[in-house]
Simulated scan of single mutants.
Amino acid sequence: MQNVNLKMSATTYHKSVVYGLISLLAIPVIATLVYSLSQRWGATITPDGFTFDWYLQLWQDPRFIAAFGRSLLLCFISLAVSCALIIPTIFVVFYYFPRLDSWMNLLILLPFAVPPVVSSVGLLQLYADGPIPIVGTPWVLIGTYFTIALPFMYRALANSLQGINLRDLMDAAHLLGASTPRAFVSIVLPNIRKGLLASLFLSFSFLLGEFVFANILVGTRFETLQVYLYNMRQTSGHFTSALVMSYFFFTLFLTWLATRFSR
């Protein structure tokens, strides 16, 4: 009986800690949501009224729609390039040259070792002039976004490949008459699908919120969602709160999609 009581008290304590943490994290989100729906909220504790006008104003703004579309386009192209380069590379590393994995782990840490501001200054000096003047164009963002997505995708795919017996699977496929490319497409890719989807959605949500590279390298010449948010910071706080919540709900929808696909 005493053990049962101790177990119940421990369960209650753990639940209270989890619920308390969730409540603490939810407070700023709920406050931003209420502020985005309020007509006016100044001297009083509660808003004067609620309205959807700020969301209607936001989603009827052609500049916002264009910035949102540019961000989505950049994310899709960057992730497509990342998949085309990283997936074959990690397969070659794990199947043919497994000793290179330690060097690859060191390589993928470089984007985190160099601050984005420092990288942006270097890219400005390198690509502002010369034979490839791509500063101010979306092409420079696609290249930088690839370096941002590289650590997330490589680490997630590496964990997935470590969870399967890659060499035995490939040997079995070869014994059954499959070529290496066909075995890779038919056997390896389905086994790493969950890791690939998780890395894609994580990278997408991170790239969609990227600001430093987009603001320094391109700015308003190819205005993305975060640059638009930065440029609209002097407008009404209700309007910017509606923008933040729209971004939050879109990211939440992507997370739900990732969960559904994983199942």
Rank of each mutant, 00 (worst) to 15 (best):
R233I: 02
V185F: 04
S23K: 03
V212W: 00
V118H: 15
S16D: 07
L229S: 10
W103K: 13
G195T: 07
L58P: 05
P138I: 08
L189P: 03
L6V: 09
A84Y: 05
N159F: 13
S186V: 09
D53I: 13
A156H: 03
D101P: 01
C75D: 08
W41H: 06
L56Y: 14
P138C: 08
N105G: 13
A67L: 08
L106W: 12
V185Q: 02
L79Y: 00
H238F: 09
A80W: 01
Y55G: 05
I45A: 14
L225I: 13
G237H: 14
I77G: 01
R221Q: 15
Y55R: 06
I164H: 00
R167M: 15
D53Y: 15
I65A: 10
S203A: 12
M104H: 15
R233Y: 02
F146R: 11
A158P: 01
L109A: 14
A258R: 02
F204A: 12
T44C: 11
H14C: 13
L150P: 08
N3Q: 15
V218Q: 08
T235L: 05
L107H: 06
L33M: 10
T224G: 08
L254S: 04
G20A: 00
L123I: 14
D61Y: 03
A84R: 07
L157M: 02
S36A: 02
S203F: 05
F211P: 03
L176F: 09
A113F: 11
